[in-house]
């Protein structure tokens, strides 16, 4: 079974999207980052959900979004970036190791993918290409772009 969660920090201000580029530019857009986890698992979903709340979420500063659809509605596009399989993802490693060390769990983790989602907000002057060029290194990253309903 598959369970996808997205975690959004309530306190983190949006950044100027232009600062993400190598030639800092006025793009008219801001960027908001979320953490995204996709679990392939067997066993009890409520136990997995409990795990997410106690291990991955900081309830003081973060909101949990438990669904495959994006946690924001209005965006020009978003860019998902994660490390290629085979490369050491230290966060993923920490989560997987912790899951393995727990004996009491009544769910079993088959695979986990961890990634960052960058939402580009505002009526953008430019499309995703410059951001892909400057934020993604094809040697180590896999990425995906999805356009939203907001005007580009």
């Amino acid at each position: 079974m598959r369970h996808i969660v997205e975690i959004l920090n309530r306190f983190q201000p949006d950044t100027d999207a232009g600062r993400l580029l190598y030639t800092p530019a006025d793009t008219g857009m801001t960027c908001r980052t979320t953490r995204r986890y996709a679990f392939q698992y067997t066993g009890r979903l409520d136990s997995l959900q409990d795990f997410v709340r106690t291990v991955l979420l900081d309830p003081i500063s973060e909101d949990l979004h438990e669904a495959a659809r994006p946690c924001l509605d209005e965006f020009a596009f978003y860019l998902d970036i994660s490390l290629k399989p085979g490369l050491l993802d230290l966060e993923k490693e920490a989560v997987v190791q912790y899951v393995r060390d727990r004996q009491d769990a009544d769910w079993t983790l088959e695979t986990l993918s961890v990634g960052r989602r960058y939402y580009f907000l505002g009526t953008g002057l430019i499309g995703p290409e410059p951001f892909i060029r400057d934020m993604v290194n094809p040697v180590i990253h896999t990425w995906n772009v999805v356009h939203g309903t907001a005007l580009v």
């Binding site: 490390l83 290629k84 490369l87 050491l88 993802d89 230290l90 490693e93 094809p138 040697v139 180590i140």
Partner: peptide, 13 residues
């Protein structure tokens, strides 16, 4: 080099 030497890229722990 970038595609060929992927295997040589390591991330430290």
């Amino acid at each position: 080099s970038r595609e060929d030497d992927q295997g040589a890229v390591q991330i430290g722990n």
